[in-house]
Nucleic acid binder design. Structure first.
Lengths: 193, 193, 193, 193
DNA sequence: CATGAATGAGTCTTCATTCAT
DNA sequence: TATGAATGAAGACTCATTCAT
């Protein structure tokens, strides 16, 4: 029974995330979510107090999934280049396979979910710490020059976004093939040596 | 009369953009926008056919303003480093002073404004062309090594998106002071030479 | 305009009171009230914040109307018997003509409208004061024996209820013809002299 | 088994009557009633077909209880004054101890339970007959003057409704101490002899 | 028999939009 | 041209009721 409960909760989150990706909050009706989750309208309210709450839970769920997958990906790589490439490729996988979740992770922060700020800060630091760890080990192994680790981690993460932000490129078409290029740029810089 | 018309239109756009920054589309009522713009509810409909349209116009307005300001900023810089720094600083200024507009430029792309896709693509290319131009000149002057210009432009732009994404850093506090650091990293890369 | 506003408010109150008399709160839909008041559903919300508020306002409106009519009725009677009879007849008129309002005046007190208790107490005392005034004058004129005026006022008012409570008689059929009998009993008592 | 059935039915009625006293029909949820009765939501439906039915049964249950207690009270009194006082005191006891039931007996009549009208009329007459019996015996014994017995019974009953109507007095504080006063007034009248 | 998870009919309420002034 | 009172379509949410366990 406890299992059924968790399962249903997940069904709702997954259904909702897909619907919310293409349409904004007010464009998605609770009834649609229920239908997509294969249950009755009223049932959603057994699992979430309301639409707003469901939306916030989605935000949490997505962020945690992303960080979890990133951690898995970087594990089992031997050098920092491999680890960072793994993070890049994972990112592209995520925004392709879970593109409906990516929106929450990277863009919802700006919206005024006041009460979630502390939680969000924690998650952000968890992810940056992961990148920093890769860089720090690279430094130890002499793969990376002496530099501001936190800044580098931030910029690296930003380069991911460069690879995906619709203002810049079409991820689905060009994402994966650009990953190595992005990483090389990050490693080598653009300056004439 | 023609002037009054333009003035009112602008008043509405400015008022709306501020309200939409902190709250989502469905959280802002037309009446509020009217009030903030100093006019009656019905009057907005003299200038925009509806709420959705107003929102899209906001998108256009913001994007054009951003590109205009970026172009101005890069002008009058002598080397590519100066130009790129100018773009970075302009970006930070923009997201500080016009933070309520930035949202539209960099995040609304993902939302399915089907009919605006072509327009959006054009604008995106206008901006990337500006960055590419800076890089290409740097290349000509020997400041920059041989590389894939378009990719570099994309990554560069991504790097300063990194400088603002709330998932990563607190722009208001840390934005400006990181600009040079971000640029240096972009120029030098992270690899041990 | 100010006039139109008051007029509409009244239209709603009158329509609502009729509907609420025969059916309970949850049985009457806002849409019905609107229809009965000759306006659109949304318009009611321009005049009352919600259904509950409308209900409470109805309570106030009815009580005030009753007291107003009672005051008018007792005026212009020369002796206490005439005044009390006028009150009785007015009561019967009220519960016949405004039967839909009477419910609120005499029965809603028990329901937990906590925040209205002080207001309600004030109204109750206004009415009892009116009855007491009749009795006190009767006493002065020697029409009435020495007695506890407040108690007598209370019992007199209760006798009204006797004349109307559906647990006891059918007001519409038997109300008016019993009024004088009730009053005589009140004056003479039932005891064998 | 048959016993258990009755016991549960009573548990539900008692629980429901308490909840309905302070809140209106639509404010009390079946789940609450079930909880208060110490059973599951579904179980109530084993005993009552629905919420409305439960409410009507409550009405019957309360009315019958009241009449039963009144009958008991008037028994064993020697003169009509004693009997009427007993009825008054019983009424006050009832509305104090079973205040949650009183509502049904004296106020629900007005609500349009069409199909219950005949039943209700019968009960009403049963009670009035009880009061009339007291008066008739008083008349026989010469305690009471010649009068319209039915009217007197009605007014008497009304007089103690007065003793409880919240429009008039605060029963809990003032109820009992006024009983004798009310009765005296009823016996003596207010007229100067 | 007892239960409570699932359901969806039913209703309040909001708010973009209209239009008479 | 500007307005804001009136409107009703649309949707979140509640809760009586059902029924599989």
């Amino acid at each position: 029974m406890e299992n059924k409960k968790k399962e249903n909760r997940l069904k709702i989150l997954e259904a909702a995330s897909k619907l919310f990706y293409y349409r904004r909050f007010h464009e998605v009706r609770m009834e649609e979510i229920a239908e997509a989750a294969g249950m009755g309208k009223g049932t959603i309210y057994e699992y979430f107090p309301g639409k707003e709450d469901l939306f916030r839970e989605l935000f949490k769920y997505s962020t945690e999934k992303y960080i979890h997958l990133a951690r898995e990906a970087s594990r089992g790589q031997e050098n920092s280049r491999g680890q960072l490439l793994a993070l890049l490729l994972n990112h592209i996988d995520f925004i392709t396979e879970y593109r409906h979740l990516e929106y929450y992770v990277f863009n919802l922060g700006r919206i005024n979910f006041q009460e979630m700020q502390p939680w969000f800060k924690k998650k952000k630091n968890q992810f940056l710490a992961l990148v920093e760890e890769c860089l720090r080990e690279g430094l130890r192994r002499g793969e990376i020059r002496e530099l501001n680790i936190r800044l580098a981690a931030t910029v690296f993460t930003g380069s991911f976004l460069a690879a995906l932000n619709p203002f810049l490129i079409d991820v689905e078409k060009d994402g994966k093939k650009h990953a190595a290029g992005v990483l090389d740029l990050f490693f080598q810089g653009i300056k004439q040596p």
